[in-house]
Design a protein around this nucleic acid. Sequence first.
DNA 1: TAATAGTTGACCAAAATAATCAGGATTAGT
DNA 2: ACTAATCCTGATTATTTTGGTCAACTATTA
Lengths: 162, 162
Amino acid sequence: MRLTTKGRFAVTAMIDLGMRHQRGPVTLAGISDRQRISLSYLEQLFGRLRRQGIVDSVRGPGGGYTLARPMTEITVADIIRAVDEPIDATQCGGLGNCHDDRECMTHDLWMSLNARIYDYLDSVHLAELVQQQLDKPEQCAGKKHEHRRVVGSADLKVAANG
Amino acid sequence: MRLTTKGRFAVTAMIDLGMRHQRGPVTLAGISDRQRISLSYLEQLFGRLRRQGIVDSVRGPGGGYTLARPMTEITVADIIRAVDEPIDATQCGGLGNCHDDRECMTHDLWMSLNARIYDYLDSVHLAELVQQQLDKPEQCAGKKHEHRRVVGSADLKVAANG
DNA sequence: TAATAGTTGACCAAAATAATCAGGATTAGT
DNA sequence: ACTAATCCTGATTATTTTGGTCAACTATTA
Ligand code: FES
Ligand code: FES
């Protein structure tokens, strides 16, 4: 399990896709423009998402990407797993080349920690995140925008200009 | 929030420390040998952990590192926060330099996702992980074992608070 | 007291690895 | 044929990881 900007970009892009997939295929150029993510990078990410069966692609003019499954059946963990290929296990790489009993602690430890985090990320569905975005009143609709503190713990300090 | 091998190594090392801090300071050389983590890397990691007040250091012969707080008051998020300096927010960096209405989705999205993950990792204490290791019988004592891609979703269940 | 050895502390630089981007090739609609 | 889009493969950049050196500190020993 790895959690970097790569996985986050993928989740962001998938939400963008989820918000407008009803109106036909969504182009990566559009996502790139809206979310300010490099088009080349998106292509790479969606290449993996497609091979993992999370999205479908339509080539040619009028094409783009569309969801391969309903949003309720796509979890955040699915997305991250697809683009951020999982670390196998530990330094043993699944071969168990540790010769003593103590080294295996690392192995089990990472595996269980991974499992716990995955277990959580598997409980968050794309539908929730999309709905969460749609529920927001036009927070920054053209004018000065004001961020609500949807999250309790982070010290969200935003300097809204205006 | 970032979750890479860096944070994982730190967690692994902290569990090793937690398992034997009762018998006095633990040397990084010992952790390096047991967990197969580069000594230089450990020094770097524990330098941060010390500055964050998570561990204390004792120099000279018989020295090493010891926990600065009881294990029940150290969370996984604490450790990861200490070694893996958190990403600020998004590309706007908390300043809201997005000029249009749509970009802010990224901001709130990442913030809330971060908060959810931190919220979870804050609920996992070092004491649990240490106990989890101590509870394990000799899992791979000289025996050959094969590893699989257990990172599915429900393959590896964790018995927390055992 | 003085010397010695074991240990952290801070720093730098190279090597390994991963993230990010650029350009061209391929497919399909008009 | 032309264009809009996905696909593919390599290059560039950033980050992680390791290795090394030297100084500071402290317990042990002579
Ligand atoms: S067997 Fe995988 S780390 Fe020991
Ligand atoms: S204000 Fe932070 S991303 Fe728009």
